[in-house]
Computed example of a mutant assay.
Amino acid sequence: MSENVMVRTASRAAPAPAARRPQGDGSRPRLPSWMSWRAWLPTVVAFGVTATIWQLVATANPFVIPTLEEIWASLAGAPEMYWTNFQVTLNEVAIGATSGIAAGFLLAVVMSEFRIIERVVMPLVVVVMVTPIVAIAPALVVAFGFGMLPKYIVTGLVVFFPMLVNSLAGLRDVDVKALDVFRTLHASRWETFRHLRFPGSMPYVFAGLRIALPMAVVGAAVAEFVAAGQQAGLGSLVTTSAAQANLPVTWASIFLLCAMGILLVCLLALVRKRVLWWSAADVVAR
């Protein structure tokens, strides 16, 4: 009798099992934070306010900047011209930036392993970096001709220094305890680099890329401004149209340069999320 009473009491005290949520109740899986409207609303508002101010200024000062309608009409009226020049500048960014980034990272690896190399090379690198790029470009044209090579070199020089400095900082920012473990296990330099220094430097490398890629677009445009030779690319289009006071073409080319930089930064952000999936910042963002 007492056992039955205890069973009934326990059944009353035990919480009822949660009702299974019907599948048709409209519930949705949680979206990533970057897809939330809260993440995009400030950007949309900022661009909307900027566009409004631009229109007001352009309407009041038609000889200073064109309206957005005029810029769009220029883009829609000659898409082949813009696309051809966009490809030229993008090619300069791809080849020049890739070469400069690779050279900066490889030199950082050598410097991190051999301090004497840093003491010898770094002063020379600083001298080159503090020299105005607009002064170097004409000399590169004299040395390498009127082709695309001087433009590639100028673009590579612009991204070389930030990539070198960030990569070197990342390769040296190693956990001392982890390094002691590798030494205890008699790991070789290659094993230490592959399993410790290289993975640990990735946040610094991507920080350098975040600076280098937009600067590569700037470097390519500057190279087209100052390096004589083939008159092609968005930078050359800006120079030519500005000399003719063709403001819609000038600003349409500038907007395309901005769009190129934004595209590269967005692609880098996607790659970073894939590579640095273990990063604390990315985990919090999810």
Rank of each mutant, 00 (worst) to 15 (best):
P199D: 02
P132H: 01
I53V: 08
V110E: 07
A228G: 14
L263Q: 06
A14D: 04
E69N: 15
T250F: 00
S188C: 09
G233E: 05
V93R: 01
Q23W: 07
L263H: 05
A78W: 03
C258F: 05
A73F: 13
V121A: 03
A281N: 09
A60G: 13
G235Q: 08
M122Y: 10
V49Q: 04
V181T: 05
M202S: 08
M202G: 07
M6T: 14
L157N: 09
P79Q: 06
D180I: 04
A252L: 02
V142Q: 11
V238Y: 01
V109H: 02
L267A: 15
P199C: 05
L234F: 07
P162F: 10
F160A: 15
M111Y: 04
P29Q: 07
A259M: 07
N166Y: 00
Q55N: 14
I117R: 00
I153N: 05
R115K: 13
A78I: 02
S11A: 15
A14E: 06
P42L: 05
G24V: 02
L68A: 14
Y204S: 14
L268M: 10
W34G: 01
L196A: 05
V222R: 12
A216Y: 04
R38K: 14
I65A: 08
I116P: 05
A242Y: 06
V126R: 00
W72A: 15
R115T: 13
V64Y: 04
E69S: 14
I101M: 13
L124S: 12
L164R: 06
G147L: 01
A60I: 11
T43Y: 04
P62S: 02
K273M: 11
F225C: 01
N4G: 13
V283A: 08
P66N: 11
W54K: 03
L171M: 07
V222Y: 06
R115Q: 10
A243L: 10
V57G: 15
V283K: 14
E118I: 00
M129V: 12
W83I: 10
V238S: 00
E80V: 13
A232N: 14
V284A: 06
W278P: 11
L237R: 15
F198G: 04
G24T: 09
D175N: 10
V49P: 09
T98A: 07
E118A: 10
L263N: 08
N91L: 15
Q230C: 08
F182C: 14
G156F: 01
S201Q: 09
Q230H: 12
E191V: 14
A216C: 03
C266N: 11
C258Q: 09
M1G: 09
V88A: 15
E113L: 14
A280H: 03
R119P: 08
W190E: 03
